[in-house]
């Protein structure tokens, strides 16, 4: 479902954020994209969502070339950028989600069905009609996740979805990710939380200075390095800094 082929990104400043990265994420898979700060995770997500053009290489999302058929690729993917929940403070959670449903071209009835499903899964019924300005970080992030999933995307790109969240919010988000994978969606997830990766990801890719330096299942990585996954993770992400 996600096909990344020899993607390189060099910024005008000369920084090479990605150097020939290639990977695939299949249907029903949750793949963790790991790395320290500046490793290239966010650039990779931005390229996959069509916000940044790669210098070379190509990305396919459900068979659509992200650069050539950007709108089609975006239609089948849900993206949660890592920067912030990105909600409109003066709108309610429901209004925020329904705005995006309209942008995805969904009809109202189907959108309301999805809202009902997502709000129950993410435990949001109590605050759907409240303005997001008064939300806690956990509530905001749940609303943002619901917005990214509103159109039932085949591919989900989640850049650090549970950073800074309380246990209940993180658990709600994990529930939704697991549910999506079970229904055949491809999920690419970045995180700094080893326990979350251990729990959610069937396979991981470790990025270091724009290169994939390690990939495979958690068990296979642990066997290859003869140490637990947390130590492997620290070894690579520590060097990145």
């Amino acid at each position: 479902m996600i096909h990344v082929e020899s993607v390189t990104k060099k910024f005008s400043s000369g920084t090479e954020a990605l150097c020939g990265v290639s990977f695939e994420v299949g249907a029903g898979e949750v793949v963790g994209l790991l790395g320290g700060n500046g490793a290239g995770k966010t650039t990779c997500f931005r390229i996959l969502s069509g916000l940044v053009r790669p210098t070379s290489g190509r990305c396919l999302v459900c068979g659509s070339d992200v650069q050539a058929e950007t709108l089609r690729a975006r239609q089948v993917s849900g993206f949660l950028p890592g920067s912030d929940s990105g909600l409109y403070d003066r709108l309610t959670a429901l209004e925020n989600i329904m705005y995006y449903a309209r942008l995805y071209g969904m009809d109202r009835d189907y959108a309301m069905q999805r809202v009902s499903y997502l709000s129950s899964l993410l435990d949001m019924q109590g605050f759907m009609n409240r303005r997001t300005a008064e939300f806690s970080r956990g509530m905001k992030q749940r609303a943002a996740i619901a917005r990214a999933f509103i159109h039932d995307p085949d591919v989900v790109l989640l850049d650090e979805p549970s950073t800074g969240l309380d246990a209940a919010s993180a658990a709600a988000i994990h529930r939704l990710i697991a549910d999506s994978a079970a229904s055949g969606k491809a999920v690419l997830l970045s995180s700094h939380n080893v326990h979350e990766i251990n729990k959610m990801c069937g396979r991981v890719l470790i990025l270091q200075r724009g290169l994939i330096v390690e990939s495979g299942t958690i068990t296979s990585i642990e066997e290859r390095h003869s140490m637990d996954f947390e130590s492997v993770f620290l070894k690579f992400t520590g060097n990145a800094l």
Partner: peptide, 14 residues
């Protein structure tokens, strides 16, 4: 400023 632009530009609208 509110970091909503990146979200908005990632949806299928021109």
């Amino acid at each position: 400023e509110r970091c909503t632009l990146e979200h908005l530009l990632s949806v299928p609208v021109t």
